[in-house]
Structure formats: C-alpha cells, structure tokens
Design a protein around this nucleic acid. Structure first.
Lengths: 193, 193
DNA sequence: GTCTATACCGTGATAGAC
DNA sequence: GTCTATCACGGTATAGAC
C-alpha cells in the first residue's frame, strides 16, 4: 500500500500505476487512488508524467514492443512454419508472463482513447503476422484440415492470452517456461493422454 | 445508434446497456452515452432501472444463470469424466456465444463493485466445479500426465472464454455449434494434423 | 520534488412538470 | 414514460509556495 520511497522516476511510478490499472481497470482507477498507492499527492504525479493517459501510453508501448521483438527472433523467422509457430506460441506465453502487467493492460484495451486505439492497431498487426504463420503451416499440411486457419489462429491467441487471466507471479509451481511449454503442448497435441 | 422505439421495458433497455458496457467497458460507459444510445434522456433511464449498477447486476445474474444451468444438463452429469468434460467444454462455448454480451460482461468483471464481487464468487464456484471434473478425468487416466490438472483446467477455461474476445454474431462462417466443436477438438486433440 | 489550494468539468442520480 | 432543470460529488489537471 504505502511506499517508503521518497522520490520517483517515471518508470518507478509507472510500475505502481500499471498495477493499479490492472486491479481496478484503467477507467476504474483514479489519480487519487494512484496517489495513495504511490504515497504522494495527486499533484506530485504530474511532475513525473503528463497525465493518466500518458502512463497508459508508456505501458502499452512497452507491451507491444516486447511482443514485436519476439517475432523477429531467429527461431521465429527460420525453419518450417509449424516449428516457427510452435516456437512463437511458447515464447509469446513466456514473454506474456515476464511482462505480465504491461501485456495484461494491452489485452484489456478496448479503444476508448486515442492511445488505446493506437495499441489495438498494433495488436491487430501482431495478430496478422501470426495468422500468416498459421496459414503457412496449414498450407504445408501440418495442421488438421477440419479447422480453418483463421479459426485456428484465433484459438491459438486465445489460449496464449488467457494465461494473463490467472497467472500470478508469486504463486507456486510453474514458471514462465513451464507454462509456455504446457500451452504449446495443449495447443498442438491436446489434453488427452 | 438512435432507436425508433417509443417505450422501453427493463429487458429491452438492458440489451442496449449491455452492448454499451461491452463496447466502452462498464466504468468507461456513462449514463449519458446510454441515454444517447437508447434515444431517451438520462432521467428516463431511472424509470426502468434503479441505476447503472442495477443493470450490471441483471446482466451478470443472467450470465451466471445460463452457465450453472449447463452444468446440470444430463450429458454433463452422467458418464465417464472425460466425456462429461468434453461435453461441458463444447456446450459452454455454445452457451457463451448464444449469450455473448452477458457472458462477456461476466468475464470482464474485476471486482470493483459489490455486484462484481458477487459475480466473481459465482464464477469461482463454476470454475471449481469444472476443475473437479478435470481432476476426475485425470484420476481415471484419460488426461496426459505431464500437465497437472489445475493447469489443465485453467487452459481449458482460457480457451473457451477467449472466444468472447473475437466472436461477432453477424460475421460469416462458423456458428455456435461449429465453434464449440472446434474448441473441444483443439482442447483435447490439438491443432496438429 | 512534493506540497496546499483550487479551477473546471463530467459523472450518477433526483425532483417535479407534462 | 419521458421530459427539463438541477444537485452533490469526484474526476483530471494546474498554479504557486516551500
């Protein structure tokens, strides 16, 4: 709740803000609540950032940044489409967990503000690139034929992104890598023994 | 946008409200916007419902209602656990699509208000009942052993619920039944050919 | 770099006329 | 059943002292 810290940088304040945004929703979170969580007054916040939406922008830029970066990694750009796809699914899950608060915020953006609409555009771009990979894997005959590639891509995204709904860093067992492996295993091979 | 309708019932107003809540988010949607979408003034809204949160309550009651009902259907309560589970996954997807706006609202509830916290409790109850089914199927040896049942249950929910992120009623191809079958197919057998 | 004080606006909600 | 008029409140943001 209350912070010991005497001074803030934009980054350290952003961390507090993003956590609050995820707890209450961006619209549901007020600058008063942020001030309380940060242990400073509302006015002081404006010394570090331009305003509420500015913090949202910084967070969404970070989230889209890490996701685009993963698509350019060597294992995502070389080899058979099905293998690249499997790597992307695993790695996207891992990245999602590593940058959980930021990516969660991205996944919840609804397009209410200019910043959110920009982020949704970037997300659509990401989706499109992965959908291409799915289509390629399907064309190479490595995906089951009874599910059309568009639908397959959506289910893949859904499975990966849904991790943000329940994963909590402190808690127990599976880390980013293990969850990523589980997601890829279920997506491609299914839950059945 | 504007409505021809001269008068509203609580139900018909609720439909407009839920659509708006899903577009802008519950917190992001204002009574002024609802008035505009409904083609009446803010004040008139209060003739039909007690207020904003009252409409949220009605919507979330409906969503939890249909989901609980599905768990009591014959195919969900008799037979081998793996078969019941497969039925629940397929049927939950179908119900989610049939009641898309209401279930979507439920899936986005974050616990900001008393109503949302009540809904989250009910959802946890639902999750628990399905998780039990997963554990039973695992105990009967019908689920792969390298993924623990808790995680398997979460991925199952995630896959089903993620449909609310992209499914749009008017659009093309797959209907509720087909999507439900695809979700169950991917969840249990995977995407690989 | 943070504070107090305050401007200004949109919010959910109510009263009472028609 | 819907309207106009209005309310109290909390929202983001700014000014200026320390």
């Amino acid at each position: 709740m209350s912070q010991q810290r005497v001074t803030y940088t934009p980054e350290s304040l952003l961390r507090v803000a993003v956590e609050l945004f995820n707890e209450r929703g961006y619209d549901g979170a007020s600058m008063g609540q942020l001030a309380e969580a940060a242990g400073i007054t509302k006015s002081s916040i404006y010394h570090h950032v331009r305003g509420k939406e500015d913090m949202l922008r910084l967070a969404l830029e970070r989230a889209t940044g890490v996701l685009f970066a993963l698509l350019d990694e060597p294992d995502a750009t070389t080899g058979r489409a099905i293998d690249r796809l499997r790597y992307v699914v695993w790695r996207a899950t891992e990245v999602l967990i590593e940058e959980l608060p930021y990516v969660t915020l991205l996944l919840r953006a609804r397009g209410n503000t200019e910043t959110e609409r920009w982020a949704l555009d970037r997300r659509r771009e990401l989706d499109h690139r992965v959908a291409d990979l799915v289509a390629r894997a399907a064309a190479e005959g490595d995906l089951r034929a009874d599910i059309e590639p568009r639908l397959a891509a959506r289910l893949l995204f859904g499975l990966v992104n849904s991790v943000s709904e329940w994963y909590r860093p402190g808690r127990s067992g599976a880390g980013p890598r293990q969850v990523g492996e589980a997601v890829a295993a279920v997506a491609f091979d299914g839950l059945t023994a």
